[in-house]
């Protein structure tokens, strides 16, 4: 499968990655190679096999509905670049 330069740019946009225009060709080639490698699995007969998203054959464990976490806002907000009135401040997202 051959990815186009357009595909590469749109994937980069979705992942919010800034890529250099001059590298786009190379990315297209490398990523296409990875897809080709994976595509080989298409030749395996999988009729009747359930997709497996997890390596272990176990159900999800459930927790009781209890409040166990308490306020640690000041501690967590020490990491944030900017806070005010208890809020995390981020660049404006809408006009």
């Amino acid at each position: 499968m051959a990815l186009t330069a357009e595909n590469v740019n749109s994937i980069a946009y979705l992942a919010r990655l800034g890529i250099d225009e001059k590298d786009v060709e190379a990315y297209a080639k490398d990523l296409s190679g990875i897809l080709d490698l994976v595509e080989q699995m298409g030749s395996v007969e999988t009729e009747g096999v359930l997709p497996m998203a997890h390596p272990t054959d176990q159900p999800q464990r459930l927790r009781e509905d209890e409040v166990t976490e308490h306020d640690q806002r000041d501690y967590f907000q020490k990491l944030a670049p900017q806070v005010e009135a208890g809020l995390y401040l981020v660049p404006k997202v809408i006009e």
């Binding site: 999800q60 464990r61 459930l62 927790r63 806002r73 967590f76 208890g86």
Partner: peptide
């Protein structure tokens, strides 16, 4: 295990899992 009570001061009911800190694991509420 953070509380869902309405109207608390901002971010006082947001724990490490809710904040998406690296290394945390979600555990489903029964």
């Amino acid at each position: 295990g953070a509380s869902t009570a309405y109207g608390a001061p901002p971010n006082t009911q947001a724990c490490a899992v809710d904040l998406g800190f690296p290394g945390v694991l979600p555990v489903l509420n029964k």
